[in-house]
Amino acid sequence: MTVQEIFEIIKEKFNQEQFELKPNIGGEILIVPAKILRELCFFLRDDERLSFDTLMNLSGVDLADGEKKKLEDGTIEIVGGHLATVYHLYSMKHNHKLTLKVLLPRENPVVPSIERVWRAADWHEREAYDMFGIIFEGHHNLKRILLPDDWEGYPLRKDYKVQEFYQGMKVPY
């Protein structure tokens, strides 16, 4: 099934005005509002015609589309704009793919966790939290996964500044 056909099926259940289908080189991307994400994912997984049984990948992204302020020390700070989570779904049964993207305000990036839908999302969500500070609401164990628990800041944000000291050790070398 093409993304367009999948979108037609989604439209039967959900109000189509909240979606946006964006053209892209590697396949169209469906922009989804955060509040219906979990409901949509359950639908995508359980509907016979779609049966998306696999979450291939979940990435956090810093879109860095806010206002860039130059600070005195030469670094930048980004105010406003968006972070995003990208979901790559796949159906082993029907052999079709779908990419979902959720845009989140940079100041309050909260998105429902889909760990209950696909358990594969568990560590991916923790990683996105670790690297971008995206809060996955309803995740059973949302804590840092790759970095130490007491690390400050979210490294993959475009305006990340490394902390001066970590437990008495100088960090920037």
């Binding site: 080189i25 396949g27 291939m56 790559h88 990419t99």
Partner: peptide, 20 residues
Amino acid sequence: PPAGEIYFRVESPKGELGYH
């Protein structure tokens, strides 16, 4: 490359290796 994004996966010896 032109602006855009891709998720591409291969069957690495350990399993599905994907690059987004």
